[in-house]
Computed example of a mutant assay.
Amino acid sequence: MGYFSMLLLLAAGTSPPGVEGNWLTDDGKGVVQIAPCGAHMCGRIARVLDKGPGVPASDINNPDPKLRGQPILGLVTLSGFSRDGAVWKDGRAYDPKSGRSYRASLRLNPDGSLKVTGCVLFICQSRRWTRMR
């Protein structure tokens, strides 16, 4: 968002756009719906677009054997995010492909895409998700 756009938002008394909505993942294999869950923001798998052979319908890689039967559709993959200015931080991202969870943050890019960053210790990786209309 440019300086002039930010001034217009401030003058209008509105806040910058939020992360709520449906987002196409960077690999194009799913859509995550981000919405409030209590006082935080969370994301659930809203659609599975990967229909190839061997695509699991349940969370088979979950480290907890009791949770491996839960369906992928509706699975919470983002949880606990709190807004701090233009960043949603202190959240967790769960990757059902690996069964691992990461410390995570969310930030809107100037082009309207979403930067999803996951970290283990001091090593972080970011992915770019695209808002679905």
Rank of each mutant, 00 (worst) to 15 (best):
G52N: 05
R127K: 15
M132T: 10
K115T: 06
C119Q: 06
V116E: 03
A11D: 13
A86R: 15
S15D: 14
G112V: 00
R103H: 04
L67E: 12
G52Q: 08
L10S: 08
R92E: 14
Q70C: 06
R44G: 07
V19P: 11
P96H: 13
T25H: 02
F4P: 10
V120Q: 11
D64W: 02
P96Y: 07
R107H: 14
P53F: 08
R103V: 11
A12C: 15
G30P: 06
T14K: 11
A12T: 07
N109T: 04
G28V: 08
D90G: 14
I34R: 00
G43Y: 04
L108F: 02
N61E: 03
S105V: 06
V31G: 01
A39K: 10
G91Y: 07
G38Y: 06
R100S: 15
R47F: 03
F122P: 04
S5K: 06
L108C: 11
K89N: 06
A104I: 02
P63Q: 05
V76M: 06
W129P: 03
G69V: 07
F4C: 14
S98Q: 09
G21C: 01
R133K: 13
G91T: 03
L121V: 13
D111I: 05
V19F: 05
W129I: 03
G80K: 10
G54F: 12
T25C: 11
W129M: 05
Y3P: 07
G112C: 01
K115V: 09
I72T: 09
N109V: 01
M41L: 11
G30Q: 08
I123T: 12
P96K: 09
M6C: 09
L8I: 05
Q33K: 15
N61P: 01
C124L: 08
K51V: 12
L108G: 13
L7T: 10
I45T: 04
V87C: 11
D90N: 13
A11P: 07
Q125V: 10
A35N: 07
S5T: 05
V76S: 01
L114F: 03
S5M: 08
V120E: 14
S105P: 02
Q125R: 15
K29Y: 04
G80S: 14
E20K: 10
P65W: 09
V55F: 06
G118L: 05
R131D: 12
L73T: 08
Y3N: 09
R127Q: 15
P36W: 05
L24V: 12
N22T: 07
E20V: 07
L114N: 00
L24F: 03
T77S: 04
T130D: 03
G38L: 12
G85S: 04
S79A: 13
V87W: 01
L67F: 04
P96A: 15
L114E: 02
M6F: 10
T14C: 13
M132E: 14
V87D: 03
Y102P: 00
W23T: 12
W23Q: 02
